[in-house]
Structures are given as structure tokens and as C-alpha cells.
Amino acid sequence: MKHTALITGASNGIGLELARIHAERGGGLVLVARSQNKLEQLAQELRTQYGSNVTVIAQDLAAPQAAQAVFAQTEQAGIQVDILINNAGFGGHGRFFERELAKEQQMIQLNITALTELTHLYLQDMARRGGKILNVSSTASFMPGPLQAVYYASKAYVTSFSQALAEEVREFGVTVTALCPGAVATGFVDAGGLQDVGAWKNAKSAQSVAEYGYRAMEKGELVAFNEGKLKFALEWIIPLLPRKTVLKMSRKAMEK
């Protein structure tokens, strides 16, 4: 497959919309998510509508060794991945000490470890011929997040890692983009128990965020914000405020 994108978390939300965008542009796809049925349905849609060459890999990236399993399957199939889109991730709501530790560990495994492993595995080849990486982060990565402590911290890693990596691989013709959206109307809300959190009252559509992120990736942008007001606040206002004030503001945004 030529011009092939591997997308994690491709069965719904931003990942699904990114898959549709890439298929519409004539690219091949490797779709990765937990649900075999949802992936097959999407694959059939893209094959029928766009004539896309689609490979489906059902894998739970929150499980140890899952990233290596995905890589092994693409290697065995002889698939060259030109674009890596690390989209899979989840959050959770509540005081850290009251939440299940296993859930927090799974979050770290998916949001940080799997993303890092997939990037390392596919970057080996990209460094020889060029490529693009899009890491779906969050505006949450720019401040601590009381009531979502691990999620915010995990996204801070993604944004920092992406920028450092972008500088390392620039000379090899590889671009790395961190997409940092605000609230997005996806299954993330239900999965994270965020239904009544005020920050999601004006959530953007997954389609609009995916379109913005894909364009930013094509341009090789470093950090992409889909909301101008949020970008201004995070880059020019939040850094000037006292830390305790930022923490109080962040917590209020997450309260139900």
C-alpha cells in the first residue's frame, strides 16, 4: 500500500474521522482499535466509498506488548507505514486516590507507553525515507488537572515528547505534530465519566477537529490548536498567572 496511514483508536471519534479524511485523499489505511466489528464496518465503508486499501488490526493498546503485536502484523503483511497517527487514549474523572489504580495504570499504558512504543517502532523506517507523525494530545497538556490528574499529566508527556522528537527527526524528512484540541464530543466523555462536566458543554465535533489536525499534519506544524481563544489563553495568559490560581481554575472546569 502506498501513502499508508496507521491510525490507532480508529473505531470512533477523531480516529474514525481521520480515517475517512485519509481515505478520501486516496491513501491506504491500517486501522487499529479494540473492536473487530467496528473496525470491519468502517473498513467496508471506506472500501465501498473510496476504493481504499484497508487493513484491520483488532488490538487493545492498553495491554502490555500490544504495540509490538501491531508492528509485527504490519511487518508480516509487508505494509510500509508512511503516516503514524497516535490517536488512541482515554481519561477518567475523580480524585486520584479514590479511583482504581488499575484504571490509572491502563491510562498510562495507552496514553504514554503504547504511543511511545509505536513511534519508536515505525520511526526506524521513517528516518530512512521520511514520513509524518500526528500525536493527538490535548489543551490539557498545558496545565495540571485536578480531578483528572493522570490524564492531564499523560497529555503533557505527549506534547513535550512530540516537540522534542520533531526537532530530532527534522533533518531526516520526518515531521511530528501534536494536535491539542479542547473539549471534543466523542465517546471519550462517556468512557471517562465526564457527562456533567462543564468544560464539555461547548465541545467541538470530532470531524472538525480531525480536519484541522490532518491539515496541520500535512503542513508539518509543531503544535496545532483548533481553537484560537484557547491557544491565546494557554500561551499568553495562563503562564503569567500564579500556580494556585491556575489549579483552582483547572479544577473548577472539571467539576460536575
Score class of each variant (00 low, 15 high):
1 M>H: 04
6 L>N: 06
10 A>W: 02
11 S>L: 07
11 S>R: 03
23 A>M: 05
23 A>D: 08
28 G>Y: 00
32 V>P: 02
34 R>Q: 10
34 R>G: 00
37 N>R: 11
40 E>A: 12
40 E>D: 13
46 L>F: 06
50 Y>M: 05
53 N>S: 12
54 V>P: 05
58 A>V: 02
66 A>V: 02
70 V>Q: 04
74 T>I: 04
81 V>Q: 03
83 I>T: 14
85 I>T: 02
89 G>Y: 06
96 F>H: 13
97 F>T: 13
101 L>K: 13
104 E>T: 08
114 A>C: 06
115 L>K: 04
117 E>Y: 00
120 H>Q: 13
123 L>K: 00
124 Q>I: 10
125 D>L: 12
125 D>W: 05
134 L>T: 07
136 V>K: 03
141 S>A: 15
141 S>Q: 04
143 M>Q: 13
145 G>R: 07
151 Y>Q: 05
153 A>M: 07
155 K>C: 08
160 S>E: 08
166 A>M: 01
169 V>A: 00
171 E>V: 11
172 F>P: 00
175 T>L: 04
176 V>S: 05
182 G>N: 11
185 A>N: 15
185 A>R: 12
189 V>H: 09
194 L>T: 08
196 D>H: 14
200 W>P: 06
209 V>P: 00
210 A>K: 10
212 Y>W: 14
213 G>N: 02
213 G>V: 07
215 R>E: 15
215 R>S: 07
216 A>D: 02
221 E>L: 14
224 A>Y: 07
226 N>Y: 05
227 E>P: 05
228 G>L: 15
229 K>W: 15
234 L>P: 01
234 L>D: 04
235 E>K: 12
237 I>H: 09
239 P>M: 09
242 P>N: 12
245 T>G: 07
248 K>R: 15
249 M>C: 11
250 S>Y: 04
250 S>N: 09
255 E>D: 15
